[in-house]
Design a protein around this nucleic acid. Structure first.
Lengths: 197, 197
DNA sequence: AAGTTTCGAGACATTATGTCTCGTAAATAA
DNA sequence: TTATTTACGAGACATAATGTCTCGAAACTT
């Protein structure tokens, strides 16, 4: 199956340096301004080396995400209070929220928008991107919702996956949108999680 | 206030031709491939004429949207059956749904992704874009939800705006995402609209 | 030692951007 | 009418990024 490699092997340090450069640049200058030249320059690599292993900017970004160089701070959901309260805490912590540091928040928002831009091109990359980025957050949400269901805060017939879809979808949409409003997101939580239980 | 114009007035036909070209190109080739040169060529105008009146590609696209040259087919919501049923019909008709023509659907999806890309740049353009694109759809949703509330299909304490936020946000997120699944969107409807009423 | 493949560096043609000039067209002002 | 002012299409121009190519050196296999 796997042919024995002949000749000089691929440089792992160069590969790592390129993915590191992507991680830094997508936060510093954004996706559009992150050119192949800029990546190569920051990584101390040659442009040709990038072209040799990746076919597009989106594919480099995708690998940086899949390899864990780029991550989103969405996976941590509190379990300290009621389901409603914890979900609202989660929203307040989310990138772009007025509560979080405007510095980090703005960078995270730029990353998310950049990843959305990368995903809008190739559909294969898009699948991997969303799987590795929103996947963990989605799983964490489902887990927290199941906890709430066990505690009787959610009807036992509720579809936790659907509720997680709605929460995550609305949140990301509002991050991509300039109309980000915590209050309206709180309203979505209230609409999805009954007051009585 | 308004000074009397001296010299040759701005050509309205040229302006319209440019916005028409944007409408065609954003569906034909997408946002990225829609260059200033391509717009000028299709509009039969000079590149300089575009640069004279718009400062960026996003601003041309924004004006095309604001002036109604580019529209989304999301505003029509059936009122023929139950609230749940009608909302699912609406989702099935939405762009990118497997039910709609794959030809038109793919074009509409490309338009939406292009507009998201345009909005990711300037925040002022983004505000106008989302206001004119999702605004009407949002209003139509709220209206349909209010109808359902009157009919007792929605608790009278429900926040129709929040429910509309969740529905539209989830839908657009799934359009931007390769994981578009009607079934999961139907689950979101079920989670937001109680079975009993 | 010979052969193979990658490396960084950079040349090269192509394409899009944004600014500029040119001659012409269409309006107002004298 | 004539001069002035502004917009127009066309295209030149410098800049920047893309993607392909070549080069000599490095690293590994046989």
């Amino acid at each position: 199956m796997t042919e024995v490699q002949r000749g000089r092997p691929r440089s792992e340090s160069s590969r790592r340096a390129i993915l590191e450069a992507v991680r830094e640049l997508i936060a510093d200058v954004g996706y559009d301004a992150m050119t192949f030249e800029a990546i190569a320059a920051r990584a101390g690599a040659s442009r040709q080396t990038i072209y040799r292993w990746w076919k597009s900017k989106a594919s480099v970004v995708t690998e940086a995400v899949v390899e864990g160089f780029v991550q989103l701070p969405l996976v941590t959901i509190p379990t300290t209070g009621s389901l409603r309260h914890d979900l609202k805490e989660w929203i307040a912590i989310a990138p772009g929220a007025s509560g979080s540091s405007s510095e980090d928040g703005a960078r995270a928002v730029q990353v998310i928008r950049g990843l959305a831009a990368a995903a809008s091109g190739d559909s294969h990359d898009a699948e991997l991107l969303y799987e590795h980025l929103t996947g963990p957050a989605h799983q964490a949400l489902v887990a927290r919702l199941e906890m709430g269901k066990t505690a009787g805060e959610l009807p036992h017939r509720s579809d936790c996956i659907a509720v997680a879809d709605a929460l995550l979808g609305t949140l990301v949409f509002q991050i991509l949108t300039p109309t980000r409003s915590e209050e309206r997101l709180f309203g979505v939580v209230d609409a999805l999680v009954p007051a009585n239980g």
